[in-house]
Amino acid sequence: MKKTYMITSFNVILAACLVFLLFVYEGPKQSQSVSANAGGTSSASAGNAEDIVGKNCITCHGDQLQGGAGPALTKIGSKYNQSEIENIIKNGKNAMPAGVISGDEVTIVAKWLSEKK
C-alpha cells in the first residue's frame, strides 16, 4: 500500500512539473537584432548597447555593471580593447559562457564597454 502512495505522489509531482513547463515557463528570452533598421546600417548608440546589456548581462555583472557573479565592467575598457572584449563575448572566459550575445550586438556592446575606462 505504501508503494502505491509513493508512486502516485511521484506521478502528481511529475505532472505538476510538466504543466509548469508547458504553460508557465517561457524559456530564455531571444534578443532582437539591432541591425534591422530602414537605412541598412547598424546603429551603435549607447542606448542600444545599454538595452542589450540590460537584457543579457546584468544578471551576472549587476544592474550598474558593478559586478556580482561576474566581474565588474565599470572600467573594463582600461583592461581590454574592443576586439578582446568581442572575443570574450563570443567565446566566453572563465565562468562566462560563450555566445550570450550574438550577431551585430557583440560589436555594439564591445565598443560600448571598451569606452568604459
Rank of each mutant, 00 (worst) to 15 (best):
M1W: 05
K2C: 02
K2A: 14
K2R: 14
K3R: 12
K3L: 11
T4G: 01
Y5N: 07
Y5D: 02
I7T: 09
I7E: 09
S9A: 15
F10R: 02
V12S: 05
I13Y: 03
L14R: 06
L14Y: 09
L14S: 15
A16Q: 02
A16Y: 07
C17K: 08
C17S: 14
V19F: 13
V19T: 12
V19D: 02
L21T: 03
L21K: 05
L21A: 13
L22N: 12
F23N: 07
F23K: 03
V24I: 12
V24A: 13
Y25I: 03
E26T: 15
G27F: 14
P28F: 11
K29G: 03
Q30L: 14
Q30D: 14
S31M: 13
S33M: 13
S33Y: 05
S33V: 08
V34L: 11
V34Q: 04
V34P: 07
S35P: 05
A36D: 15
N37V: 15
N37P: 02
A38Y: 13
G40F: 01
G40T: 00
G40S: 07
G40E: 09
T41M: 14
S42K: 13
A44E: 13
S45F: 09
A46N: 09
G47K: 08
G47D: 13
G47E: 14
E50I: 02
D51E: 11
D51L: 10
D51T: 10
D51F: 05
I52Y: 02
I52G: 02
I52Q: 00
I52M: 05
V53L: 12
K55N: 14
K55W: 02
C57Y: 01
C57H: 00
C57G: 02
C60T: 07
H61F: 07
H61S: 05
G62L: 04
D63E: 08
D63C: 00
D63G: 07
L65W: 01
Q66F: 01
Q66L: 04
G67D: 05
G67T: 03
G68A: 07
A69Y: 03
A69E: 10
G70I: 01
P71R: 00
P71D: 01
A72G: 07
A72S: 15
T74E: 11
T74L: 11
I76N: 00
I76Q: 01
G77C: 08
S78R: 11
S78V: 01
K79H: 05
N81S: 09
N81F: 02
Q82K: 15
Q82G: 06
S83P: 00
E84N: 04
I85Q: 02
I89H: 00
K90N: 10
K90Q: 14
N91F: 01
G92C: 06
A95S: 10
M96R: 01
A98H: 03
V100E: 11
V100W: 01
V100L: 15
V100P: 01
I101K: 06
G103D: 07
G103K: 03
G103F: 05
G103E: 09
D104S: 12
D104R: 03
D104P: 09
E105K: 06
V106P: 04
V106H: 10
T107L: 10
I108C: 11
V109F: 09
V109Q: 11
V109D: 11
K111Q: 15
K111F: 09
W112L: 05
L113M: 10
S114Q: 13
S114T: 14
E115C: 08
